[in-house]
Amino acid sequence: MTTLNDSDSDSPIRILLIEDNESNRRLMSDYLIYCGFDVFGLEEGTQLAATIEQFCPQIILLDLKLPTIDGYALLEQLQQQDDWKQIPTIVVSAYAFQRDQQRALELGACRYLVKPIRLSQLTDVIREELAKSSP
């Protein structure tokens, strides 16, 4: 099983992308794969636990407005597991209000990006957060 601290530089970084809008999910996923990342996309958060256990993401990209369970509840779930709260989580949301950003950061998100985002900005932020979490 691969963990966040594995240093196998030949393996691509694993990104879990949770985004309910299919075109947004496909665009971000395709771009990140093109950039050399290994991406697993979910359209909702009900499979969060099983996906983390099986895919072992090294970073999570999370939309807040999701069907069934919202991104805030997923942030809370991530904070309840010691292994999971170590995974940097970047919120990518259309919610632009300061209170939404503050709430997400208080719930454990390491960064908050407001849609629409430039894909180059997304990869820059991913690399910055991965550099912070590297041993």
Rank of each mutant, 00 (worst) to 15 (best):
V125M: 09
Y34C: 09
A50P: 08
T68A: 13
Q79Y: 06
I33T: 15
I15C: 02
S29E: 11
E53V: 07
F97P: 08
S134R: 15
Q86W: 08
V91C: 07
K132C: 12
R111D: 15
G71Y: 04
L119N: 09
E129V: 09
P12H: 03
I60C: 02
L113M: 11
Q81G: 02
E76Y: 06
R111T: 10
S23K: 13
Q98H: 10
L75F: 04
Q102H: 12
A131Q: 15
S120H: 13
P116K: 07
D70N: 02
I90N: 05
Y31R: 02
Q98R: 12
E22P: 10
I126Q: 00
L119V: 11
L105K: 06
L122K: 04
P88E: 05
G36R: 07
N5A: 11
A50N: 14
I87Q: 08
I117R: 05
Q86H: 13
S23V: 12
L119G: 10
L130A: 05
Q81D: 11
A104W: 01
E22A: 12
Y72C: 03
Q81F: 08
L4N: 08
E43W: 09
I87D: 05
L78Y: 03
R26P: 08
M28F: 14
E44A: 10
Q54C: 11
W84Y: 15
N21V: 11
L48H: 02
R25Y: 09
G108S: 09
T68L: 10
D82L: 14
R99C: 10
N5H: 13
P57Q: 12
L62P: 07
D63M: 11
L113F: 07
Q54H: 13
C110N: 10
D70I: 05
